[in-house]
Design a protein around this nucleic acid. Structure first.
Lengths: 124, 124
DNA sequence: CGGCATCCACATGGATACTG
DNA sequence: CAGTATCCATGTGGATGCCG
């Protein structure tokens, strides 16, 4: 910040070609506490309204969900579409780029299920 | 915290069986700014000493590296072995569990390389 | 070499309440 | 329904310096 043309932790233009850079940048995306859950939810339950998504994520406050969705929008992961004005309805959905996170989420889930033991069958 | 037998953001016993939980827990691990890089570095460059690792990660301060390694140790991702006492040497390496993060890192890298454009060839 | 001790700045998440 | 507005606690990273 206050350096060049970048603002904060910007869109999707961080790094050039270095391998680990793509990794870190991706980490800064799915490392946010709720981001992976939101993406997972949208992957599974299709397009969702704000409160429906809030229900699906379960445990998130509206402020944080709002913040997260804004972040995900800016990064081109989710889309926000206003469905109707009078009974005000919107729908959040994943972009192509967002759907491409599927394998990442899945790898994470696989690892988690393999190594995060359920609190009672700890071996060694 | 201050609930039951857990302390802070503990070892590896968060969630029981729910799918998204494994995802979130994994995110809390690889979401720390330097964790994925450290793991990646150790995956690539084999066992490393503290300063060698610091070099390899490039840009991290000793305090943060120290914190990160402690965290990763507690979670059973890396091992710390004292090689020699007199010229004091240690070596950090990945555990089996740590190596299993390979696919996750890889999925992240793949996504990153596909969607994080290098700041000059943005094609909307 | 391999850290730890401080201190600090800022990001992130959360609770609660209120609005169009 | 779909958020915004506050305010606050904590987490997380970073700079610098010192130590065994």
């Amino acid at each position: 910040m206050s350096e060049d043309g970048q603002e904060g932790d910007p869109v999707e233009i961080w790094c050039a070609g270095e391998e680990w850079c793509a990794v870190t940048a991706t980490a800064s995306l799915i490392g946010k506490k709720w981001h992976p859950v939101i993406v997972d939810r949208l992957l599974t339950n299709g397009p969702l309204g704000f409160n429906a998504l809030k229900e699906a994520v379960d445990g998130i406050s509206s402020k944080v969900l709002s913040d997260s969705l804004e972040d995900l929008e800016e990064r081109g992961i989710v889309t926000r579409e206003v469905i109707s004005e009078k009974p005000f309805r919107v729908e959040y959905d994943l972009t192509e780029r967002g759907r491409d996170l599927g394998p990442v989420i899945d790898a994470m889930r696989t690892w988690g299920k393999a190594h995060l033991v359920p609190a009672d069958e700890r071996e060694s």
